[in-house]
Design a protein around this nucleic acid. Structure first.
Length: 527
RNA sequence: GGCGCGUUCGUCUAGUGGUCUAGGACGCUGGCCUCUCACGCCGGUAACAGGGGUUCGACUCCCCUACGCGCUACCA
């Protein structure tokens, strides 16, 4: 069987944000297209909200661009089947509706909404399946005139078959079979002439020559009526593949951006969110829950995630190559991706695992790339000048080298603000200060001794400081632990951090002296 | 209610009738390393939803039940 040209699409409705679940669906489409050398098309499903489409679409396109998911046809790209906005294709849909009407696959329905609803309610009350009586169906001109004379208005409904089965094969689910009789006469055109999703989607899939429809599982029950529309219009059917949805962390509910409050009760989710919020605060980013939310791609961009880490994580959410491979470059995932290794069960979004991918990707980065990622955060927070001087850059480079795996998100560089603030401007953590300085007399005395010999140290490299301090404690007849903590707190204000000798070297001799003096002074004040 | 889909460690998953006393990863956890934290290394914890079949043999095939989710819109 020769595979036709692969053409797939992702059809977002412009909502103003890019949802992580949507990215996963788009990713699978994109990978499938790239794997087969086909086309990935972006179509804008804006039949409902014609207003502000541009504004609402921009974040979605920006998100995809950032993630490196590019489209061959669609907004900003054009293409042989333009326009790619459904709001600009009404004539095409109207024509399709006329054709279906003419061929008897659809009919004008003059029922009033309340009449139709009444029928449905009756059926529900009697606990039987609702099937429209078609009492107000008009198929001839005379019938139309008769109903119009009564002052009725019409919509166009599908004239669904009521017998037999709709059978099709799904590339993820296998063979599917639905009773036609279970289907409703869905409305495809409103009385104002605008068309509904099922119609527009099928018409466009046909027009764009979509070969494979890869979408979320919630569309599976919609498939029979879409097949009916496609067949009525004489369109070739695409091959369907329905993806399991992305669920909330630790639950089987579909991930939704509206339930942020609820997700924050999940520990792992909250950890990620708080981490992000902390960074956002330091760079003065106003965190609106509309977009600053771990369900939305913008969140990750703001706090310094790597697109590749997100993509790699998402790839494995419902797909796997084998029992061990986890790291995929773009080239590798394009090479290996196939629909038949997609899982059937919903996959729940795990913030911890995403974070672990991010950390690994971050650690592996070349120094230059890491530096480029991190500098904007220092600039935005006002800790360094913009653009940074070479001197600052080499300082940041030294910090990155020393901090190493401690930086997982680019914004984590802001955990080391004390290394950029003036010697008398950073703050001391109260608890650490008390424990390591105020209530540690012996250690403090050692610190004083060290401070006094500080000017004698000519080589302030980390390596030499290491040697020097080891000799120093040896001479004093104590362990390293006796001096290290006091120094750390005195010069950084914190109880934890990366290697002390690195920190000292980065702060420099004068800085260390100033900071130790300041700390000792503060201790004196407290006593 | 009807129809449909799904169900392996807490989570992502491997597994297509015997190689499974079920493998990997994240997490959690014990230890080592060590100036703290992190990294790293070594070890541990933990799963086939339940019940019936089919079969010499079932995580794998069939049926039922339970649970979860979705669709059943003049939303997409």
């Amino acid at each position: 069987m020769a595979l036709p040209q692969v053409r797939v699409r992702f059809a977002p409705s412009p909502t103003g944000y890019l949802h992580i679940g949507g990215v996963r669906t788009a990713l699978f489409n994109w990978l499938f297209a790239r794997h087969h050398g086909g086309k990935f098309i972006l179509r804008v499903d804006d039949t409902d909200q014609a207003r502000n489409v541009h504004e609402a679409l921009q974040p979605i396109m920006d998100g995809f661009k950032w993630l490196g998911i590019d489209w061959d046809e669609g907004p900003g790209m054009g293409g042989p089947h333009a326009p790619y906005f459904q709001s600009q294709r009404s004539d095409i849909y109207a024509e399709a509706v006329e054709k279906m009407l003419g061929d008897g696959y659809a009919y004008r329905d003059f029922s009033k909404p309340e009449e139709f609803a009444a029928e449905r309610q009756t059926a529900e009350k009697e606990k039987r399946q609702f099937i429209y009586s078609r009492t107000w169906m008009a198929e001839t001109e005379d019938e139309v005139k008769k109903f119009e004379a009564e002052g009725r208005e019409s919509v166009v409904r599908l004239k669904m078959p009521r017998e037999g089965k709709c059978e099709f094969s799904d590339m993820v689910r296998g063979d599917m079979s639905f009773e036609w009789g279970g289907e409703q006469d869905h409305v495809i055109q409103r009385k104002d002439g605008s068309c509904l999703y099922h119609l527009t989607s099928v018409v466009d899939d046909g027009a764009f020559e979509i070969s494979h429809v890869i979408r979320a599982i919630e569309h599976l029950p919609n498939t029979p009526r879409q097949i009916f529309i496609a067949q009525s219009l004489g369109l070739e059917l695409p091959i369907y593949a329905h993806l399991p949805f992305v669920a909330e962390p630790g639950s089987s509910h579909k991930l939704s951006k509206r339930k942020l409050d609820k997700y924050l009760k999940n520990r792992d989710f909250k950890v990620l969110y708080d981490h992000g919020e902390n960074i956002a605060q330091k760079i003065g980013y106003s965190a609106s829950p509309e977009t600053f939310n771990p369900v939305i791609v913008d969140f990750y961009r703001e706090i310094g995630f790597l697109p590749d880490a997100i993509i790699n994580y998402l790839l494995l959410l419902g797909w796997s190559l084998d029992d061990k491979t986890e790291d995929f470059t773009r080239a590798a995932m394009i090479q290996e991706f196939s629909l038949d290794r997609i899982n059937k069960a919903p996959a729940s979004f795990d913030p911890q695992k995403l974070t672990s991918f991010q950390s690994r990707y971050m650690w592996r980065l070349e120094m230059k790339e890491k530096l480029d990622m991190v500098l904007p955060y220092l600039e935005k927070s006002g800790l360094i000048q913009s653009p940074p001087t070479e001197e600052i850059k080499s300082k940041v480079r030294a910090i990155l080298e020393a901090a190493n795996e401690r930086i997982s998100f680019a914004g984590d560089i802001l955990d080391y603000t004390e290394l950029f603030l003036a010697d008398d401007a950073f703050e001391y953590e109260e608890k650490a200060f008390r424990k390591r300085l105020v209530n540690a007399e012996a250690q403090r005395d050692l610190l004083v001794k060290l401070r006094n010999v500080l000017p004698d140290i000519t080589d302030f490299s980390a390596e030499n400081l290491d040697n020097y301090l080891h000799t120093f404690v040896e001479r004093e007849g104590v362990g390293m632990g006796m001096i290290v903590h006091a120094i750390r707190v005195a010069i950084t204000g914190k109880a934890v951090g990366f290697g002390l000798f690195d920190i000292m070297s980065i702060i420099g001799k004068a800085g260390c002296k100033n900071r130790i003096d300041r700390a000792l002074q503060l201790v004196a004040q407290q006593q």
